[in-house]
Design a protein around this nucleic acid. Structure first.
Lengths: 207, 207
DNA sequence: ACATAATGCGAGCGATAGCTCACAATTGTC
DNA sequence: GACAATTGTGAGCTATCGCTCGCATTATGT
């Protein structure tokens, strides 16, 4: 006996049919963001692109930001899965090979969906979802700090927190800038050269 | 004998009076961007804030983006003036002191008007003025490359262009992130510690 | 088969955006 | 003081936005 049968989005979809609707909406949002940009991603347009009525959209997402946030979350999950895997793989390796692998993975992660990544990076501030991305950054930061602490004997690092900030920020910026500047792709030779340089940068700094 | 007396913005203001109007518009835009954010910066609001009618606004700026672009240009000029000065000052200094000064200046430059810088950094993609900012980056890049080439004997740098990319990108990201993350300011001790670390990072990489 | 809940629909509302245009006021020139 | 150029004005147009709501359709349970 629902008191407010239609107000407030229903949030959860129980049947199979509605899950498809939700997926279609998120995918349509991502597609429009990539193809037309954030400003063109109106709720009416998203609903049309998803082949769903505007009314249905508002049953599952309370506002436009919520839709973009869903896209952001999905993209972040995709990236963090790769990053977490890399840190696990690298935990007991030497600084050189660990740094090299992590840098390679950072570049790889930025290439998962570069056009979407670019739009999201540009538009995240407007969605109020900065907090989520900061949480993501904090996790990368924490993972890196963990590595530094467990390899402290091989390194000369006074403050692992600060060192992790310096390394993560630099690696992220290099990967981000390189991928976005070079028209959404890097030639494999250029990528190799960049990995070499970035590895020298952080290894030289850490020991 | 103007054929189109009122169509197409007049672009140039000849009298004293109209220069004041143009300045008031740019300053009002910056003020609103900082105080209320990009989305609230409607043309009607900017005109009101400037104490100017909406009609006058459209005599000098063809659209909202042009106004924001004017703010961006002004801010970039402010920053580049500091940066150019630093490179001139540092041209004949050792790598250590050069790197240290440039890093300090990068942080300083980000502190010129952090709130405006943040808004602009977030909203530049929407203004179509990415090209201008890329030109700005390219200049920093070129200046750094020039330093590396003229100090090649003291360094071990195979590709000055690539090395400049690595250094400029890292320094910019560290300064940017540090200034924006720490609620628009850095304690002077924290800034010193960051300068020390960043200096070690780039000096260790360059030689 | 029927009742009930879950899901889907889309015309249209109010708000606000960017922007135009016919006109008023000010300034420069003689 | 007269006349034209320059500059300033703001009501209001059109377009689009986010979003609502009453109702239609589909699925579930019995």
């Amino acid at each position: 006996m629902a008191r407010k049968p239609l107000t407030n989005p229903r949030k959860s979809a129980s049947q199979e049919r509605s899950r498809a609707t939700v997926d279609a909406l998120v995918e349509a949002t991502a597609r429009i963001l990539v193809r037309d940009g954030f400003d063109k991603a109106s709720t009416n347009r998203i609903a049309a692109e998803a082949g769903v009525s505007i009314g249905s959209l508002y049953q599952y997402y309370p506002c436009k930001e919520a839709l973009v946030a869903a896209v952001i979350d999905r993209h972040n999950q995709d990236i963090m899965q790769v990053v977490r895997g890399a840190f696990a793989e690298v935990a007991v390796e030497s600084v050189e090979s660990a740094a090299r692998k992590l840098i390679a993975v950072a570049i790889e992660a930025h290439r998962i969906d570069p056009k979407l990544h670019r739009v999201l990076a540009e538009q995240i501030p407007r969605t109020g979802r900065l907090k989520d991305v900061e949480a993501f950054n904090r996790e990368a930061h924490t993972l890196f700090k963990g590595y530094l602490e467990s390899h402290r004997n091989e390194l000369r690092v006074a403050d692992p927190g600060l060192a992790a900030f310096v390394c993560v920020t630099s690696i992220e910026a290099l990967a981000h800038t390189a991928v976005l500047r070079n028209s959404e792709k890097l030639s494999s030779e250029a990528a190799e050269a960049l990995i070499d340089e970035a590895t020298r940068l952080v290894v030289g700094y850490l020991k």
